[in-house]
């Protein structure tokens, strides 16, 4: 394809992506170095019959005018990154000096908002991704083993948790595990504790969020693996059988290696998606127990005072996190292409 026709064909997408993905990244990075103007303080001397008093008041008009003139705010350098709500160098150093032992240091880290969010996001990603792959694989093997006529309906119902809007799907689960809902009652009965409530316990809340994550993502892994299973070479399976391989050994040494490239693909997509975990925290109203990086940004942006700079700094840190997470994949793609 000629350069010029390539250019015209990709122009609309390129313009859109530059304007609404690349430019916002620049804008986020810039914003994260600025902080909102402080309020303009007026000092007025009131002189009465009993002497003069100094009074300070906020000059609303001047503040508004200043903020209007320079909406970005004033330059703050790396101050926002190092403040208590983000990397909190000061607090971390103090906690390191004060703490006795790593567990103690860890628990004081979890009191800092950024590390709390990062801790949950990483734990969620690290636990949900492998579980999703394993569950999806087992479901795919099982579906492959049942009669052909049953496969259609099975796939239909299996797709539902993935297709349904994350916010809606997690709400549905949340209502069921409510202390007055069916699963909540079931849990209370199992634990023999009538006061058990998922909403009140940090541990249970983390588990519920991860259960939701696996429930939501497993269908994707299942569908991909199921498609892969259709292409497994039956000759190889048969010869393995002739050689005396048991059913388990056939799965272990023939099917799993065949599916390995798909596992990498699913893992890559899942890493990206799990790192941005967000909606379930809103639905589960879990922010007291678990916050994620995305939730921290959302929280800064919402509400009366939009903390743009704080949100921007968290965004930049999140993007860096994604970059670190994906760097092995990018390097590999690049190498594959060059080969």
């Amino acid at each position: 394809m000629k350069h010029s026709s390539f250019f015209w064909f990709v122009l609309p997408s390129t313009v859109l992506m530059l304007l609404f993905i690349a430019m916002p990244i620049v804008s986020v990075v810039t914003q994260s170095f600025y902080t909102a103007h402080e309020q303009v303080i007026l000092e007025v001397e009131n002189c009465g019959p009993f002497g003069c008093t100094q009074e300070t008041s906020v000059d609303q008009e001047a503040t508004a005018a200043l903020r209007e003139a320079e909406p970005l705010g004033k330059f703050a350098g790396f101050d926002i990154y190092t403040d208590r709500n983000h990397l909190a160098f000061g607090e971390v150093a103090a906690a390191w000096v004060k703490s006795d032992g790593l567990p103690d240091f860890g628990s004081s880290l979890m009191n800092l908002p950024f590390y709390k969010a990062l801790g949950f996001t990483l734990t969620y990603t690290a636990i949900v991704t492998p579980l999703t792959i394993v569950l999806g694989f087992i479901v795919a093997i099982a579906v492959n083993a049942v009669a052909k006529s049953l496969r259609g309906p099975t796939i239909f119902f299996s797709l539902l948790p993935m297709i349904v809007t994350p916010l809606v799907g997690s709400l549905i689960l949340f209502w069921m595990v409510d202390a007055r809902g069916i699963l909540g009652t079931g849990l209370q009965w199992l634990a023999d504790d009538p006061n058990l409530s998922v909403k009140a316990s940090t541990g249970l809340m983390w588990i519920m969020l991860m259960v939701y994550g696996v429930w939501h993502a497993a269908p994707f892994a299942f569908v991909v693996f199921y498609a892969g299973l259709q292409t497994v070479n039956t000759d190889t399976l048969e010869s393995a059988m002739v050689d005396g391989a048991t059913r388990w050994e056939r799965i272990r040494y023939v099917v799993v290696p065949h599916l390995m490239p798909l596992v990498t693909f699913v893992a890559l997509i899942q890493l990206m998606d799990n790192f941005r975990v967000f909606e379930p925290i809103i639905s589960f109203q879990a922010s007291a127990h678990a916050t994620s990086l995305s939730y921290a940004i959302f929280n800064d942006l919402g509400g009366e005072t939009r903390l743009l700079s704080s949100a921007a700094a968290t965004s930049v840190l999140t993007i860096i996190g994604i970059g670190i997470l994906l760097s092995p994949v990018l390097v590999r793609t690049w190498r594959d292409f060059n080969r």
């Binding site: 430019m23 990244i25 939009r306 743009l308 994906l326």
Partner: peptide, 15 residues
């Protein structure tokens, strides 16, 4: 770009 969580870009749009 696909890996970028949309919410990180939103803070760039608002202003």
């Amino acid at each position: 770009f696909r890996a970028m969580p949309p919410i990180t870009l939103v803070s760039g749009y608002l202003l």
